[in-house]
Design a protein around this nucleic acid. Structure first.
Lengths: 309, 309
DNA sequence: GACAGACATATCCTTTTGATATGGATACCG
DNA sequence: CGGTATCCATATCAAAAGGATATGTCTGTC
């Protein structure tokens, strides 16, 4: 019987131990997994044992000629893989954020795109061209356009609908702004779409001035509307507040997707489809060549002209 | 200048430090974040500093009256949040897997559902009813049906189309089997849908006999087809092999979604829509009541009759 | 029956972490 | 202005965790 209460998982979960576990799934034995992650077999045994003790169930069936996962182990491995997917995106993004120093490809992007789409692309790109250092500069859509115009970056990603003539663009994602509230909000569960009047009459939790999301909202439902309840400069701060019941928010579907899935937020139907195109932009008549071209392929190829929801 | 090469991120990334970072985003200061995660402020300073050193860029602007995230910090926080989402799913799943001991709700499910859908539901359920211990038993669809029939579990989730008359069911997800290959496979990039003949003539990487996926495949495209290249009892083992180029595989869209997004696998069009319903099942004329009922609400409510792709 | 591969255990030493104390900087308040 | 609170940085020491190495047991193989 545990006497311990419930220490939060992130206080004891060791990523190397988790990796070891997925390694066992991939290589069929504890030793092989240990070799794969560069850990001494004896320490691997120790790590895995504490992992099992902390999870509270047996992960692998040990035998003197290899180890196989238990049913629980298989499940745990699958869940662990999702964790590592997140971590790899984080790693890919972080690697691109380090202060540029002779990198071969520099892309710039606005926040929403950098948050939700770029890490995947960066990961895929890194896999295709492992030798290439890619750097990511983050700025608002207007600044991205300027950077592209001055030619100091070959490829940019923006969420603004207005793109100068001289600049080429291609849609990489069809995003939607959605209205969300906490599950206990009066709007939650309504079937009749919200009208523009209702929306403009209600104070919202909003992104700051200058953000692409805010600009799009200003443009589509107009400037003359209630003052925001509060403004934040990050999507997830808004999510948190909305979940906490501070009020309704209008956010990119990309930003609220997971909260919707987890049932922490509810999407409110709206009379209008707040669609917006997220675009790759570059200068000049030709499609970008070389590394930038490959990157563009990944961004457009993966995102197919398919909307997220 | 780093002399160090490239230690894999999971070898140095500390989850407490990451949590600290998201805490700064949420609470506005390093101290507050440290308090929130139960860490001494001094250690928080130390942890965050090593985190910054390892990422290679500055995460927060320190000031003597609070700290705010840098642009890079904001992005990093967002990416970190996705990591924690994965971890929370892992934690929710793991908590339900510990050997049942007087739990209040026991659900049983087949693999695919347990892998991809249940953790989210468990997380949401746990949030609604924090006091309730939920346990999860994992078995194949046939066994789930038996358990429901004998009444030893009030709620089950299956992927089998055949459900006995006496048992009530409700679709919680519309899944699709998709044919996938590595990006360099001859099938990759073809527009003309694969025909049934082509598919049955080609050896595949398959799930083991008795799995829901295999049964569905046997049923829809028939038993008379090429022997599998190899069989695995886990979806991701198949994914890995397919990515490695061992051959084509037919898997739940749920299982390959992320590999597709990351461009590691390609979906091959097929002449037939391999749709299958994932269903919640229970016994008796009435919908389950109490905890099981709430759980069912979550599973059906969140999954809306909407397909994943 | 020697051998190899796989897992467990024990030990030692280094590194990391937790806890505590302290100091400088800035803002607020009477 | 002095008192006080908040925030962040640094230093220090004991405790815990982690890496390295050696050795033992079991079990198939040749």
């Amino acid at each position: 019987m545990d006497t311990a209460g419930k220490p939060p998982i992130e206080n004891w979960l060791q990523l190397p131990a988790l990796r070891l576990l997925t390694g066992i799934a991939d290589h069929g034995s504890l030793s092989a997994a240990a070799r794969a992650v560069g850990m001494a077999q004896s320490n691997a045994t120790r790590n895995l044992k504490t992992l099992e003790r902390r999870f509270g169930y047996t992960l692998i069936n040990r035998s003197s000629r290899g180890s196989s996962l238990t049913q629980e182990g298989i499940l745990t491995v699958e869940w662990a893989r999702e964790v590592f997917e997140g971590i790899e995106k984080l790693a890919a993004g972080a690697a691109a954020l380090v202060t540029p120093a002779g990198e071969e490809l520099s892309v710039c992007a606005s926040m929403t795109i950098a948050e939700y789409l770029l890490p995947t692309w960066l990961g895929a790109f890194q896999m295709q061209m492992p030798a290439l250092r890619t750097s990511l500069r983050i700025m608002n859509s207007q600044q991205v356009i300027e950077v592209i115009q001055t030619g100091s970056s070959p490829l940019g990603f923006v969420e603004t609908p207005e793109i100068p003539e001289a600049i080429q663009s291609k849609t990489v994602w069809t995003d939607r702004l959605v209205i969300v509230t906490a599950v206990n909000h009066p709007w939650a569960g309504r079937f009749r779409p919200l009208t523009k009047a209702e929306l403009t009459d209600t104070p919202l939790i909003e992104r700051e001035q200058g953000s692409g999301t805010r600009a799009f909202l200003d443009q589509t439902i107009g400037h003359e509307r209630s003052k925001p309840i509060v403004e934040f400069n990050s999507n997830s701060a808004i999510c948190q507040s909305a979940i906490a019941g501070l009020g309704p928010a209008v956010l990119s579907k990309l930003a609220v997707e997971s909260a919707l899935k987890a049932g922490r937020l509810v999407e409110i139907p709206y009379e209008q489809d707040l669609k917006r195109e997220l675009k790759a932009i570059w200068e000049g008549p030709e499609a970008p060549n070389g590394a930038a071209g490959r990157f563009l392929d990944i961004a457009t190829g993966k995102a197919e002209p398919r909307s997220y929801g």
